[in-house]
Amino acid sequence: METLALADMGRYIGVGLTAIGMGGAAIGVGNIAGNFLSGALRNPAAAPGQTAMLFIGIAFAEALGIFSFLVALLLMFAV
């Protein structure tokens, strides 16, 4: 029982730590959106053509956050 509780504790700490990874993804997405906005304000004419690139970039950055969320889920429910 003792060891099981200890294992649970470690698991929950690990789940909490993986949440930091999602914060990293949030920083990345914010960076992309902010840089897109500053670029778009400098050259508004070119902005509409690049929204696809914006979403692709966001998707790539966000995927990594989702990977860390997945690790959290796996720790929480599958391990």
Binding site: A59, F60, E62, A63, I66, F67, F69, L70, L73
Partner: peptide
Amino acid sequence: VSHSIRLAGAMMAGHA
């Protein structure tokens, strides 16, 4: 891998 996990993960995360 990223293509599929991105979609499923985003959906699962929000719902959970």
